[in-house]
């Protein structure tokens, strides 16, 4: 990445030393024009939400969408957060997020360790089974998964999404297997010579070595769970069990005539994502993109 940027920097200098032809000026004008139009397209729908969220109800109805609020009114945020269950939704989402992430990392790395390091009939069969399972699209399975979830008695509880996030995450297992296959076995072998047991090798050698893969999985998982609507909507229909997505979804009915409160809810829901994105931008790009490098 660095080398390419350097080269491009080099072009910049060369071209600057040359003269700017009208065609070049036109091309770079068009480039910025396209980018700026792109940014306007991204911002335009959101600006209206931000402006509206700070308006009182009467003001909201009487002013145009692009008009600035008279003052920074925060009542909508309070109502969305407490009455609209966004606070409860955030709490539930974070509980699910933490438990599922820990669960996925443990089961995923353990599976990868056994499947990748041991060459037994069982481990080969399991690997093949997971490979076939990647073919099955999650979305079309829910009709029958629903009945299993119902039967094992976790329907309408926080456990339903947690179990599904941990138990059906075959992609994470694949990321771990792929990463582990690039780590040489010499470290494991020398540990065996020193008399370390397999669980010990897993905990003190494999798990630390997998850190970059764990980071990738964590990013994919966190973004995926925080934004997932389908699972919670299907498996946690109770009003007192919202996650952030369903809390927001349930705004549509009761607040249909009070959009300023929905807007405040939208902003609260997006804020954690924005903060994480700004802090971890670089890792998120590589995590989400490399995470999709699969199959």
């Amino acid at each position: 990445m660095a080398s390419v940027t350097d080269t491009q920097g080099g072009h910049k200098i060369k071209k600057r030393r040359r003269h700017y032809s009208p065609a070049q000026i036109l091309v770079s004008f068009l480039k910025y024009l396209v980018l700026i139009i792109g940014c306007i397209m991204v911002f335009l729908p959101m600006v209206v939400i931000i402006l509206g969220a700070f308006k009182e109800h009467k003001e909201f109805l009487s002013t145009g969408v692009f008009e600035l609020p008279e003052k920074l009114y925060l009542g909508n945020f309070k109502e969305a957060f407490y009455k609209g269950d966004v606070s409860l939704g955030l709490k539930n989402t974070f509980i699910i997020l933490i438990v599922s992430c820990i669960g996925t990392i443990l089961t995923g790395t353990m599976t990868a360790f056994v499947v990748q390091r041991f060459d037994s009939l069982l481990s080969r069969t399991v690997k093949a089974a997971f490979l076939v399972a990647t073919l099955l699209p999650n979305i079309s399975m829910q009709v029958t998964v629903f009945q299993i979830v119902d039967k094992i008695g976790v329907y309408d509880s926080l456990w339903a999404p947690i179990i599904l996030y941990v138990g059906t995450d075959i992609i994470s297992i694949y990321i771990f297997i792929q990463f582990l296959s690039q780590i040489s076995t010499s470290l494991d072998e020398s540990a065996i010579v020193d008399g370390a047991s397999y669980p010990r090798i897993y905990f003190s050698i494999i798990l630390p070595l997998l850190r970059p893969a764990i980071a990738t999985v964590l990013i994919i998982k966190m973004v995926g769970i925080y934004n997932d609507f389908y699972t919670a909507n299907l498996y946690m229909p109770s009003n007192d069990l919202p996650v952030i997505s369903t809390a927001l979804y349930r705004f549509i009915g009761p607040y249909g005539a009070k959009w300023e409160i929905i807007m405040a809810g939208i902003i609260i829901a997006i804020l954690p994502t924005l903060i994480i994105f700004l802090c971890l931008q670089k890792y998120i790009y590589s995590g989400l993109v490399s995470g999709s490098v699969k199959e």
Partner: peptide, 8 residues
């Protein structure tokens, strides 16, 4: 936008 919550 890719990172944003689908409901939002």
């Amino acid at each position: 936008p890719y990172m944003m919550n689908g409901v939002a």
